[in-house]
C-alpha cells in the first residue's frame, strides 16, 4: 500500500511537470498567449510566497514569520545580495521566536 502511494504520487507529480513542458512545444501559441505564461508563473510563485509567509495549515502563521519575510523583501528592494535577503529573513524570524513572538 505504501509503495502504491509513493508511486502514485511520484508518477502523478512527474506527469504534471513533464506535460507542461511538452505541451509548451506542441502548442503553437500566438505571441499574445505565450506572453501570459511567465506572468502566470509569477502569479503562482507570488501566491506561493505570500501564502507561505502569512499562513500555516490554513490559519494565520503568527507574526515571527511574516516579519522575517518583510525584512528580507525590504532588503531585496534595497538591492541587497540574495544571500543577505535569505539569511536576514531567517535570522529575524529565529530571533523573534527566541524572544517569544509567536
Amino acid at each position: 500500500m505504501l509503495i502504491a502511494v509513493i508511486l502514485a504520487l511520484a508518477l502523478g507529480t512527474y506527469a504534471f511537470r513533464f506535460s507542461g513542458l511538452v505541451l509548451r512545444d506542441r502548442l503553437v501559441l500566438p505571441d499574445e498567449v505565450a506572453r501570459l505564461l511567465p506572468m502566470a508563473a509569477a502569479a503562482l510563485l507570488a501566491a506561493l510566497a505570500l501564502t507561505a509567509a502569512v499562513t500555516e495549515a490554513g490559519a494565520f502563521a503568527g507574526f515571527a514569520r511574516p516579519l522575517g519575510v518583510l525584512v528580507g523583501v525590504v532588503l531585496a528592494w534595497r538591492r541587497a545580495p540574495f544571500v543577505a535577503v535569505v539569511v536576514a529573513a531567517a535570522a529575524t524570524t529565529a530571533l523573534l521566536r527566541l524572544l517569544g513572538v509567536p
Partner: peptide, 22 residues
C-alpha cells in the same frame, strides 16, 4: 527547523527572485 527561521527563508527568497519581473 522553525527555530532557525527557515520557514521565512523560502518566501523571502522567492519574492527576491520575483522582484525584477514585478
Amino acid at each position: 527547523p522553525l527555530r532557525l527561521g527557515v520557514d521565512a527563508a523560502f518566501p523571502a527568497g522567492l519574492l527576491a527572485l520575483l522582484l525584477p519581473a514585478l
